[in-house]
């Protein structure tokens, strides 16, 4: 997969969808293309968050530790991003991510990501918009869930 295809992929990630292609290209260029084989761990719950991952191809499982061992809580498909919360705020990983099949990802390093946001405010505004959108959805979900009780 070439740089320009990666830019296409990034554009399909909601977080990046409204950002200029040239900036996305810079983001892709400065990110690492990493491959994992099935079963390899991308990061573990409790680790310090140092990068976000965009799935380019393959699938990955999100696992959460429990008393009876790890439980799979979700599955990641191409075009999805994972670990972005940990690089925006200095929290540790809230879940483990494991490759479920041979996996190609774009690894966006935390310092690069923050640097880009600082450099290009219009990009930061776009990301804020997406996050605010998510928050309002989550709040709405929460209200629904409460009223359903």
């Amino acid at each position: 997969m070439l740089l320009k295809d990666e830019v296409g992929m990034l554009q399909r990630v909601p977080l990046f969808s409204a950002i200029e292609p040239t900036k996305l290209k810079l983001l892709a260029f400065t990110s690492d293309r990493v491959s994992y084989s099935a079963g390899q761990i991308l990061f573990r719950q409790g680790d310090e968050g140092d990068a976000a991952y965009v799935i380019l191809s393959g699938r990955a499982d999100i696992l959460v530790d429990s008393e009876s061992g790890p439980i799979k809580v979700a599955e990641l498909e191409p075009n999805s991003i994972v670990g972005e919360i940990a690089i925006l705020c200095n929290s540790s990983r809230t879940a483990t991510v494991r490759a479920a099949s041979p996996l190609e990802v774009l690894r966006i390093r935390k310092d690069h990501f923050l640097r880009l946001m600082r450099e290009f405010p219009e990009m930061t505004i776009e990301i804020l918009r997406v996050l605010a959108d998510r928050l309002s959805h989550t709040t709405a979900d929460l209200i629904d869930a409460r009223s359903a009780k």
Binding site: L26, F29, R115, E119
Partner: peptide, 16 residues
């Protein structure tokens, strides 16, 4: 040049 022309010369991306 397309990727990097806008960046200040001391930017850490130049390491890439």
């Amino acid at each position: 040049i397309e990727l990097f022309a806008d960046l200040p010369p001391d930017h850490q991306f130049f390491q890439q």
